[in-house]
Design a protein around this nucleic acid. Structure first.
Lengths: 138, 138
DNA sequence: TTTGCTGCAAAAGTTTTGCAAACTT
DNA sequence: AAGTTTGCAAAACTTTTGCAGCAAA
C-alpha cells in the first residue's frame, strides 16, 4: 500500500473526514518517516495548504493517537507516526533525534499506574546526551 | 538548612553570582517543591523581579543542571529541582504531574548509548494517562 | 573596577482562533 | 442539506533579546 492509500485508510479508521489537506499532511508524515516540525511538513506541501491547517490537523491527529507530538528539546514540537514503538535518544547540542528500539517497559508502566493511581495508556522514554559528531567537536 | 540558605549554597557551588533575584527564584523552587511554570514562579516573587529575569535565570539554572526543564504536555515548560531522581506520570486531561520513584534504568541507558552511538548523561521516563479524578469524570 | 545581571520594552517564534466560504458526507 | 473544514488574517502566548544603568565580586 502506498503512503496516500495508507493515509486515507487511517483517516477512515478513526472516523475523520477525508479532505485533500488531511490526506496530504498524513501522507507526508508517513512518507518522510521521521520527526518533523509543523513547519517542515508545511514546506513539503502544495502552497494552498496553510500552516494553520497543518497545525490544526496535527493537533487532531495527535488527539486521536494517530501521531505523537514530541515536545522535548527545541522550541517547537515534532511529530511522528504513532504506529511504531520505540524510544528516543536526543542530542542536546544539535537537537537531532534518533530512534531506539527496545522492548517496552510494561512492568514499569504497570508499577507507575499502581503507585500513582492513574490509568496509564502509554509511556515515553528519552535519553539525552551528545551524538557522535557533537561528541567529537567538544 | 532553610530554603534561602540552600539556594545561596547552590548558587555558590555552581559559581553563579548571587543576586537577590536568583536567591528568591531558587528559594521558591526549593520551597514549593513541585513542577512550576515560569509564570507561577514569577507570581510568587516580589514585583520588582520581571518575568524576563525569571526566564533568563531558569535557563541558566537548567543549563547548569540545577533544575530540570519539563517540556511535555502543556504549552509552557515546567521546572523542578534536579536533585531528586524520579519519573513522571502525567494526566492528559488536567495536566497534573505526579512523581514516580523507581530504580533508575541504567542498563537501558547503557544500551541506548551503545546502539545510538551517543554519550548519554541522563534520561527521562514519562507515563501518560488519566488521574483518579479525571478517570471518574469519564 | 570589572564583569555580569536586571529591568524595560520590544521582538521573535510558535500555535490558536474567528469567521465566511467551500467542501465532505 | 447538514455539518465540518479550510484559508486568511489576526491574536494569543511563551520565550528571547538589546541596551542602558546597576550591582556583585
Amino acid at each position: 500500500m502506498d503512503a496516500e492509500q495508507a493515509a486515507k485508510t487511517k483517516l477512515k479508521e478513526i472516523g475523520m473526514r477525508i479532505t485533500p489537506q488531511r490526506v496530504l499532511i498524513l501522507k507526508n508524515i508517513i512518507a518522510m518517516n521521521g520527526h518533523l516540525t509543523a513547519e517542515e511538513i508545511h514546506r513539503e506541501l502544495p502552497s494552498f495548504i496553510t500552516l494553520a491547517t497543518v497545525y490544526n490537523n496535527l493537533k487532531y491527529f495527535a488527539e486521536l493517537n494517530l501521531i505523537n507530538e514530541l515536545s522535548f528539546g527545541s522550541s517547537c514540537s515534532k511529530y511522528e507516526l504513532a504506529d511504531t514503538s520505540h524510544y528516543h535518544v536526543i542530542c542536546e547540542s544539535c537537537q537531532q533525534i534518533a530512534d531506539f528500539n527496545y522492548p517496552l517497559l510494561n512492568e514499569v508502566e504497570y508499577a507507575a499506574a499502581q503507585v500513582a493511581h492513574f490509568k496509564v495508556h502509554r509511556h515515553t522514554l528519552e535519553f539525552y546526551g551528545l551524538c557522535q559528531e557533537c561528541k567529537k567537536k567538544k
